[in-house]
């Protein structure tokens, strides 16, 4: 069994001025750092500007990095349901 880490919680801010909201993610410190480095992998949909991971201390992304962190998601239109043409007759999809 490998080392057991304390659990961190991850919070995302969708717009400057709005609060950081809790995500589902609770994770270990190495994971928390990955969240900060690679949010695109963990938070693929929609525009976001900031990310926090918190346990006893808080690690937060720098506002000036938000483009670099979150913009890669914007050029993946195939990740969005509207990318796929559904005929109007087809419901519940």
């Amino acid at each position: 069994m490998s080392k057991q880490w304390p659990i961190w919680e991850v919070f995302i801010r969708s717009k400057n001025g709005l609060e950081h909201t809790a995500t589902s993610a609770a994770c270990t410190p190495p994971m928390a750092k990955w969240h900060l480095k690679m949010p695109v992998m963990f938070i693929p949909v929609g525009k976001k500007v900031g990310i926090w991971a918190s346990s006893k201390e808080i690690i937060a992304s720098n506002p000036k990095d938000s483009g670099e962190l979150f913009e890669p998601a914007a050029d993946k239109p195939y990740r969005h349901p509207t990318f796929y043409d559904m005929p109007n007759e087809v419901k519940h999809i």
Binding site: T23, S24, V45, M86
Partner: peptide, 22 residues
């Protein structure tokens, strides 16, 4: 925590189903 994970997952699943139907 389960409910919040589901909100996020449902948003992402929608494209999965549509690409399959396509």
């Amino acid at each position: 925590p389960y409910a919040r994970a589901m909100v996020r997952i449902c948003k992402e699943e929608s494209f999965h189903q549509r690409q399959g139907y396509e």
